[in-house]
């Protein structure tokens, strides 16, 4: 009986950790595939973005065609990072995109972050309005969330369209490091739909 009680108590302790799960499906708004890592305190969802969506979005923000072409060469996901912990838990979540790793074809790659792009735009002498739009469109490089806080933003992966890769997430809950790997995320294919001919 003592042994059984011990097992049950152990189960109670590991229950929250065991509830970490990967959810995949089609995002209702975007109607595109998503990968979401959920734990009792965190939810991070990556929704595919079509290269054409990125072209249209950045052209609409005033980028020149060369720059639009450059951005669309990258694999972009719309990302929603949330602290979903109960309000009374006082759980603080922190992340740093520099600690995330893309595992692809035996290589470990980093996300292309705001600072990387700022350097590119400086070199290409992109106008301030476009630099501002780009900076704020991307997921923050570092962020700290209290319960109910969240951000949306694009995250940029240096892999080819249609690639399948793993993403290792790293974050902290009240300063304690946590890690998870999302297997087989897929970058959207660059689909060209030719105009209909009569």
């Amino acid at each position: 009986m003592k042994k059984l009680t011990g097992i049950l108590l152990l189960l109670m302790l590991i229950l929250p950790a065991a509830r970490a799960e990967l959810v995949t499906g089609t995002d209702e708004q975007a109607q595109l595939p998503f990968w979401e890592w959920r734990t009792p305190s965190l939810s991070v969802r990556f929704v595919q973005r079509l290269p054409d969506q990125s072209r249209a979005y950045f052209a609409g923000r005033g980028f020149e065609s060369d720059e639009v072409k450059l951005i669309a060469e990258y694999c972009i996901f719309q990302t929603v990072f949330k602290n979903v912990a109960p309000a009374n838990s006082k759980q603080v979540i922190e992340y740093d995109l520099n600690e995330f790793a893309i595992l692809h074809k035996g290589q470990q790659l980093s996300l292309k972050k705001r600072e990387d792009w700022q350097a590119i735009w400086e070199k290409r002498k992109v106008k301030p309005a476009q630099k501002i739009a780009f900076e704020w469109s991307l997921l923050p490089t570092r962020q700290r969330y209290q319960p109910a806080d969240y951000n949306w933003g694009m995250s940029v992966f240096p892999v080819k369209h249609g690639s399948v890769f793993d993403l290792r997430l790293t974050w902290k809950v009240n300063g304690k490091p946590q890690q998870a790997t999302i297997k087989n995320m897929q970058c959207a294919k660059d689909v060209y739909i030719a105009p209909a001919t009569e």
């Binding site: 009986m1 059984l4 009680t5 049950l8 108590l9 189960l11 109670m12 229950l15 929250p16 509830r19 009792p40 109960p86 309000a87 009374n88 209290q146 319960p147 109910a148 806080d149």
Partner: peptide, 30 residues
């Protein structure tokens, strides 16, 4: 013994339920 076991299972269930079901959000952070 079964009574004690039922009691433990009940507590386990309650804790799990509380962690899943509590969704109140803090509107503003100091």
């Amino acid at each position: 013994m079964m009574k004690r076991l039922r009691h433990i299972l009940y507590i386990t269930f309650l804790i799990g339920f509380a962690q899943i079901g509590y969704t109140e959000t803090e509107p503003l952070h100091i």
